[in-house]
Amino acid sequence: MTMNLVLQGPGASPERLGAIGALAKPARVHRLSAHALRCEDVGATADVRAAVAAAAFEAGVDATFIAAGRSLADFRLVAMDMDSTLITIECIDEIADMQGLKPQVAEITEAAMRGELEFSESLTRRVALLAGLDAAALARVYEERLRLSPGAEAMLAAVKAAGLRTLLVSGGFTFFTERLQARLGLDVAHANVLEVVEGRLTGRVVGGIVDAEEKMRTVARVCQDLGCDPAQAIVMGDGANDLKMMSIAGLSVAFRAKPVVQARADVALNFSGLDGILSVLA
């Protein structure tokens, strides 16, 4: 199989990218933009991959080895995690901050994202700490703290233009996914429902929890609805609870992800924005 190497970094010069690419002895080099190169027909042995990875990380560059010829046209769906993937924050941590409990909740969040704590248990524990909070805090988090990740809008515009459908599937909450779905024109959104009684959070989730298994089932279900195979899905995530849905995808993308996720993803974007996937599939 002929392999290409895509190198990209927001602060990387063509010279630096070329020097890193040379480690893979490419047959040809194609400049994709001021900060991205595609090195074609490269060596992709374990030693080459390790040398490229080390040089790229030191230079603040994302390096992706990918089969030649892959493009957005190969896919029908882009599925995204929400917290710390499509957006820059963990919503539950910011909600907890309204209770003065952000350190306690964030510690549980981090353990779950690293895969050290089962997600359903972690969510139940975190949501319980929010009991009694005025539900207006959710709107404050959305309006004051929620920001899209770099490159999110450019990525979405490109995949929509290419005819792909979009899915936002989150272990977070519908309060945020529904607003993002409307704001960004996403096709499908699925997340947990926070219980609110008399204007205050009860500390419980209504219905089943959207955990790793449910995320995977959701990707498979949406693909079935589209009449395509999960191999025609691009799945983006950052935490351990994204690994199962990433495992059935045709292309898995780790965005600013935990090490356990980066190690198992096809593409790792540590420096580029979400639109870095466009260079990978250019």
Rank of each mutant, 00 (worst) to 15 (best):
M1G: 03
T2Q: 04
Q8D: 00
L23T: 05
A24N: 14
K25Y: 09
R28T: 10
R38M: 03
A46S: 06
D47G: 03
A54M: 04
A55L: 03
A56G: 12
F57I: 01
E58I: 00
E58G: 04
A59M: 10
G60V: 04
V61A: 01
G69W: 07
L72I: 02
V78D: 03
D81N: 12
D81P: 15
M82Y: 12
I87C: 04
I89A: 06
C91N: 08
I92N: 10
I95Q: 08
I95V: 14
L101V: 08
L101Y: 13
K102M: 07
Q104A: 11
A112G: 12
M113S: 13
M113N: 14
E116K: 05
S120M: 02
R125N: 08
A128W: 06
L133N: 10
A136F: 12
A136V: 13
A139C: 01
R140V: 14
R140A: 04
V141E: 01
L146I: 04
P150S: 00
E153S: 06
A154K: 12
A158E: 03
V159S: 02
K160G: 12
A161G: 07
L168I: 11
F175H: 14
F176E: 14
T177L: 08
E178A: 12
L186A: 07
H190T: 05
R200S: 04
R200Y: 06
L201Y: 08
I209T: 15
I209K: 05
A220C: 02
A220N: 08
V222R: 00
D238S: 07
D238C: 05
A249W: 15
L251I: 15
V253H: 10
F255H: 04
P259Q: 00
V261S: 01
N270H: 05
G276H: 08
V280T: 15
V280W: 11
V280F: 11
L281Q: 06
L281F: 06
